[in-house]
Simulated scan of single mutants.
Amino acid sequence: MNLQIDYLRTFIALTETKGFTKAGIQVNRSQSAGSMQIKRLEDEIGKKLFARIGKTVKLTAEGHILIKYALRIVKEHDDAVRALSKPDLEGFIRFGSPEHYTIGLLPKLLARFSSSYPDVLVEMRCENSDKIKEAVDKGELDIGICTQISEGGQVIYHDPVVWVAEPEFVFQAHKPLSIAVFEEDCIFRTWALEALEKSGLKYRIVYVSRSISGLIDAVRAGFAVAPIIRSNVPSDLKIIGIGDGLPVLPVSNIVLHKTKKTASEIIDCFSEHIIKSFGEKL
């Protein structure tokens, strides 16, 4: 059995888009060429990977097995190619992000980039989204990722904002909801309060923090519920929502901004690294 990389790329794209037209655009192939690759991959394996439902597709049981390996195979292949063909980049890059995105993915992302490009120094700044975008626009930062609060930039990931609570939490509609929120200049706080007021729910702010660790500690203590992005929800806490009586919160679109004041191979390389890393979370 020979699992060709190009076929696996198309397989991954079709899994994500659920349609041959969009998958073809993603891998830069025509719809018919993409369809033929999937057929050849299925012939090679001897199993159907997708069930056709109208104009969309969904993974079969065998497809679910393969996708786990396909993602790893393609990632390792691309990492090997980059390691063997990478340019000898030297210099530094100024990068900024809100704290919401500096836990979880970013430490691994920065470690991987440092391993691939040891002679490039990444200077990191952690501030709110509006400050990060302003710094990029002024040329004080080379690259920034932030929550989409205005036009411009490239959307690289969608992360829903959710209510998180300790496992035994039960919402009591006759009592004000105790909430923990970020400080006033945080968009997640604004979204949470607007959603509660629109739904007519009574609430009280009992804990204010600039750090996400502070909010999570307040939730763990059973002191409050808090609005955070889903990718930051610890495994020991639970997500609550409509079924529990709370309003739905917006989706945080994560946007990448690059400075227009400076262009360099390092900036382009680091941008591609960020986009790829977030893409692997999908």
Rank of each mutant, 00 (worst) to 15 (best):
K47Y: 14
G96S: 09
K261L: 12
V251L: 05
V233Y: 04
L41E: 06
E127H: 03
Q172K: 10
Q37M: 15
P98F: 00
A173M: 09
S277A: 15
A195C: 10
M1P: 01
D236C: 10
D6G: 07
A51H: 09
P250M: 05
P118A: 12
R72Y: 08
V248C: 04
I266Y: 12
V136P: 05
D130E: 12
G54V: 04
R52V: 02
L59I: 00
I267L: 09
V181N: 06
S30Y: 01
I229G: 06
H174E: 13
L237D: 05
R204S: 13
E184R: 15
L71V: 07
C146R: 08
A23W: 14
K198F: 12
C146P: 00
I179E: 00
K281C: 10
L89A: 09
C126N: 07
Y69G: 01
L41P: 04
I145G: 00
T10P: 08
M124P: 00
I25A: 03
D88H: 15
D244F: 15
N28M: 13
V225P: 02
S129T: 05
I266W: 09
I67S: 04
A221C: 03
A263M: 10
S231K: 14
V161T: 05
L106E: 15
K281H: 03
I73D: 04
N2F: 09
Q154C: 00
I216C: 08
R230N: 00
A135Q: 13
I228E: 02
V170H: 05
I187E: 01
F169W: 02
A180T: 03
V251G: 01
I25L: 06
S150G: 08
I228T: 08
A218P: 03
T259P: 07
E197R: 12
L237N: 00
E134H: 12
E42I: 11
E194M: 08
I216L: 10
P118Y: 09
R52H: 01
P176T: 11
Q31P: 06
G222L: 13
A180S: 02
D88T: 12
T190V: 10
V248K: 08
V162T: 08
R112V: 03
F171V: 05
I12S: 00
S264R: 10
F223Q: 15
V248R: 06
K276F: 06
T259A: 13
L201D: 13
V170S: 10
S209R: 11
I25T: 06
L246I: 10
I274L: 03
P176G: 04
Y117G: 08
F50T: 06
R29F: 07
R112P: 04
S129M: 09
E134Y: 15
I205F: 10
T262H: 12
T262G: 00
P227K: 01
G245M: 09
L3C: 11
Q26K: 11
A263Q: 09
D119F: 13
F113T: 07
A221W: 08
D78V: 05
Q172G: 00
H77W: 15
R82N: 05
E127T: 01
F20Y: 14
L249W: 02
P234I: 04
D185V: 05
S97N: 09
R220L: 13
E42K: 12
K131W: 07
V251I: 08
N2K: 05
F171W: 11
L215I: 01
